[in-house]
Nucleic acid binder design. Sequence first.
DNA 1: ATCATTCCGGACCATTCAGTCTATAAAATG
DNA 2: CATTTTATAGACTGAATGGTCCGGAATGAT
Lengths: 194, 194
Amino acid sequence: MGRNKEFDTTLVLHKAMEVFGYYGYEGTSLQHLLDGLGIARQSLYDTYGTKRDLFISALKHYVTAKSDSVISYLENSDSVRQGITGVFHEGAFILKDENRRKECFIIYSAFDRIPHDTEVAEFITKDLKRLEEVFYETLVRGQSQGEISHRQELRALACYLNYARHSMTQLAKITSDPKVLDDYVKITLSSLDK
Amino acid sequence: MGRNKEFDTTLVLHKAMEVFGYYGYEGTSLQHLLDGLGIARQSLYDTYGTKRDLFISALKHYVTAKSDSVISYLENSDSVRQGITGVFHEGAFILKDENRRKECFIIYSAFDRIPHDTEVAEFITKDLKRLEEVFYETLVRGQSQGEISHRQELRALACYLNYARHSMTQLAKITSDPKVLDDYVKITLSSLDK
DNA sequence: ATCATTCCGGACCATTCAGTCTATAAAATG
DNA sequence: CATTTTATAGACTGAATGGTCCGGAATGAT
């Protein structure tokens, strides 16, 4: 009983990603959020709690969705090279979309918070580890399938690919030239060819 | 005539890099600066102007010094591969130094400011272009000297190396494991071997 | 000695901040 | 109708913000 929520809470969460991604965590004022989310102040506090609570909710929602997508790419592709290539092309594809790219930048607001918010730090660290592990296992499978040379140091390569994927988002923040992004992906992927 | 300045203005500028790098531009309060720089409030305003003025001064000082060093490495090494390798190893070396690494992170506070401060945006963009150009010319020289394969697309490769160098700083912000940094450099440099 | 400059601490300013509270209206359920 | 939940707008708070101004002391050059 009682009145129903009138706004889609996860849709508002996506808007929050954009706001935090644009202004950064410290640079985001409550007014920015109210304008960006299109809800009243009290609704924000009732639904999400404090500004920090909202930030963490938005961040977790973004990161887990992204990581799940990456992992699905890697684990559900028969060809390991196709899986890894798919991850990077998918990432670049989103970053080239004028609308969808905006929310991605919340991850960099989160990186900025690492030294000042242990919950953010632990969450990010755990997710990075989780992803690196999947990259590693995928590469191992690639070696056994003969797609990846046995000369490769898989641990270092997994780590590199993992960070390179994040760097791609950073790169998109500086330039919006799609060709730059594509070239970056191409050269990054050439590290598989040793 | 008159009393002399009692603090080394460029040394204080380096401290400002650290403060801004740690808290971010928005996250840095005047109190943080006063504590970090060790000078009185009025001295700060007399010497550097507003908080934003100080930020831009610190940023420009950092970026130009760094870029000049990179360019010097690239232009003054007979072997092109040694020059490029030198740039990355030097970068990693600084990022592994507990003290010297701190001031490097001002560059990411600057990236965050790009959408909100045109002067910062223009300065960063210009510096990125300048560096990419030197990378490109160096690679051209490398091809003519037979150090770089003629199959390489030099423009894309220059762009990649330029951004990869910046990503290295980002990487250092997330992890302080020196091995991760070294592996990252190693794999990045392997892109020269196509 | 005079004057200019820098130093410092603290007072002071208007503004903005995140967050709370109140009041009232609108739905949905019983 | 009564109850419960949500929605909105606006007033409000205490604290912190960046920035300015003042007063007095120290230092250096003429």
